[in-house]
Amino acid sequence: MRSGKPLVLVVDDESHIVHVIQLKLENAGFDVVTARDGEEALALATSARPDVVITDMQMPYIDGQELCKRLEADTTTRGIPAIIITAHGFALTDVDRELTSIQAVVNKPFSPRELVTNVQAMIAGKTVAAGANTGDNNA
């Protein structure tokens, strides 16, 4: 059941990071589902259809970048804006931009407050974009 609040999927194999992000997002009025690795995240994204995905870059099995590629390749999860969190520095390439919906890369240690602001902007942007689709295509 969706509560009507925006839903964010948080993916990280480090549970303390997940907990911090979850707490901050919930305090900011979001619903949060979490996953510990890319596999779990894929299944959860398909069933829960989050509005935004926040994922760690370095994870066992499927890393954050691969997760975003697979989300984009699946029609049910295509276009969900994603934020990558990384401890090793990561720059978006044109290929990433084409094959994923990664909209931001956040380096650790990150500011949870700014992350929440980022998510809010993405949700707001999405609403605007959805409205704009009916009119001019200003993308």
């Binding site: 303390h16 907990h19 911090v20 979850q22 707490l23 901050k24 240690p109 990150f110 500011s111 949870p112 407050r113 700014e114």
Partner: peptide, 20 residues
């Protein structure tokens, strides 16, 4: 305890980030 530590960890992240 976890909830409290999570909140404090979040604050610490924030402070670290600011100082860095």
């Amino acid at each position: 305890e976890l909830a409290q530590m999570t909140a404090e960890l979040g604050e610490s992240y924030e402070e670290l980030n600011l100082l860095y």
